[in-house]
């Protein structure tokens, strides 16, 4: 995950507090696991500001069923519908389920 983004998110988490904060991601594939891991247990590549920092933020993908169900239909149709066919939805669900189980 981009180092500047790591720094920015760390700052927000420090200011706002982790309690009321949620992360929603939109990566297409392999980047999802890495980003989710970075924002929960810390940067696994040990390169960025989140190395060794366990923010423990709740992390979702915008196309997870439990997330996309909250998006009004018209906006869903315009912004997300086609991506259902492009992204691997079962994999997104299972990747995040695995990380949540481990966390």
């Amino acid at each position: 995950m981009d180092l500047e983004n790591q720094a920015a998110i760390k700052k927000i988490a420090d200011e706002v507090g982790a309690d009321n904060l949620v992360v929603v991601l939109g990566m297409p594939g392999e980047g999802l696991r890495l980003a989710a891991e970075t924002l929960t247990t810390g940067d696994p590549s040990w390169a960025g500001p989140l190395a060794g920092v366990s923010l423990g933020l709740p992390v979702y993908h915008i196309l997870e069923e439990r997330v996309r169900n909250h998006v009004p239909e018209d906006i869903y149709a315009e912004k997300l519908q086609m991506m259902e066919m492009v992204l691997d939805l079962p994999r997104i669900e299972s990747d995040l389920a695995e990380l949540r189980a481990a966390g």
Binding site: V16, N20, V22, L25, G26, P28, A35, I62
Partner: peptide
């Protein structure tokens, strides 16, 4: 809730999230 939206160009971009 306060949300951090982190998108990707070929997936769902930040502004859309």
């Amino acid at each position: 809730k306060k949300v951090i939206a982190l998108g990707e160009r070929d997936g769902v971009p930040g502004p859309a999230i």
